[in-house]
């Protein structure tokens, strides 16, 4: 299991109903590409986060298939429509089977 994997998200606290907001997400993860070699010259096996999703009140905002070319500590910025108050759920899927989640509420105002 990758160690010290911590998600971080930036979501505005409020939005007008139907407003488009910008979301930023980060997760600390080495994204071991499978291309690097260790001291003995052996390939270090791939171990990355391979998928990221963002949902709001059960509806999908974005679903990203991720490959080793995504940099260490994967970063995403995208836009979501906020039809009503609710909760954003962010999910990252690791090659090793771990699933990391983060959520953030947003109010209408």
């Amino acid at each position: 299991m990758a160690e010290n994997v911590k998600p971080k998200v930036r979501v505005p606290k409020t939005a007008a109903a139907g407003e488009a907001i910008t979301l930023k997400t980060l997760i600390s993860h080495p994204m071991e590409s499978g291309q690097r070699k260790d001291g003995d010259g052996k390939l270090i096996p791939r171990s990355i986060i391979n998928r990221f999703t963002c949902d709001f009140n059960g509806q999908n905002v974005i679903d990203v298939t991720m490959e080793p070319a995504i940099s260490t500590n994967p970063y995403f910025e995208f836009e979501a429509t906020v039809p009503e108050a609710g909760t954003f759920t962010f999910t990252w899927y690791d090659d090793d089977g771990s699933v990391y989640t983060e959520s953030q509420d947003i109010a209408i105002g």
């Binding site: 990203v64 910025e77 995208f78």
Partner: peptide, 13 residues
């Protein structure tokens, strides 16, 4: 998805 406000995404590669 249906709640994407735009078809825009930024990342680092």
């Amino acid at each position: 998805g249906p709640l994407a406000a735009s078809q825009m995404a930024s990342t680092r590669i």
